[in-house]
Amino acid sequence: MNSKKKHAWLTSNQMILVYIIAVFSLIVGIRQPAFWDFATVLNTMRAAIFTMCFALCEMIVIISGGIDVSFPAIGCVAMYVPMYIINRVAPIDNAWFAFGLAVLIGLAFGLLNGFLVAILNLPPLIATLATSSIASGGVVTILGTREFTVLPSSLQAIYNTNLITYTSPKTGFQYVLNVLVLVPIIVCLLIAWMLKYTMLGRGLYVIGGNKTAARVAGFNVKKLQFAAYVWSGVFVGVAAMIYNILMHSATTSALMGDEMITIAACVIGGVRITGGHGGVGGVVLSVILITLVQNNLNMLGIPTSWQRFVVGIVLLLGTIITSWQTKRSMKMSQA
């Protein structure tokens, strides 16, 4: 029994991700010794911030048995509108205002998603697709497509606050890690705790596993569905404002298309697309893997134009391996 459990742990989805990360790092490290530097850790963390935030939104929705493809559009609106107001309507130079408005916008669209899925019972993919067009179509029609590249001083101050400053002894370059990296880290811990130790968290798994049984057991299915989509909307508002600060750019289309890689990241991290499975640990590993691949293909000598293709292949293989893993664990149990 014990050795069986140990075996199951060693071949679990998370451990396989660890192996792949290790092997990939080894290959890159052998070809480019410069990889073995603390700077790699900082670069990876910096690059992973957005994907991690988005994955934290998407993960909750998928666990609850839905899917959200509207978060890029919601995020765009949530960073564009405050920046539009600050730049063109009233120069409110206050970080709380920027983040607060972003959260409110996210909340509004999250409620719309929740309404469409939980109350009207529409298929989540199509409902969130509709929200996506309403959000991006609406904001562009009213406010136009500009790009704001200058941050107000309050946000610039956040940009200038670094958590870690590190000068590489090998290259002499200076690397910094912004304080905002704490947001996904803290939220990861909170979500991990919430999923495991609160009835809200267990409820999300419960409705992702069997909605009818959840209703019979006395769970408020609609409320839980709302919670998932509202969380996704609210947190993507925060994430988008972080994007705006770190990238110095707020446009109406900056995040569009990110849903693809985010969903893939969740699935590779062990969040089953059918709902009810997965957790923060796997998703963190999966985001690290994807970011490592994206960041270090240059080091492997793969030309820029081929990188999207290679990342696509990695995602496809990851998805196939995960599905195969799932099927195997189901089969093992029946025997």
Partner: peptide
């Protein structure tokens, strides 16, 4: 169909309904 949750553990399946009934907030 037993109205059970396939994705949860045996222990949770046995205990969870009672926890909901008692309006527990934490696990």
């Amino acid at each position: 169909d037993f109205a059970v949750f396939p994705n949860l553990t045996v222990a949770e399946n046995i205990a969870l309904n009672g926890e909901v009934k008692n309006r527990k907030k934490f696990v």
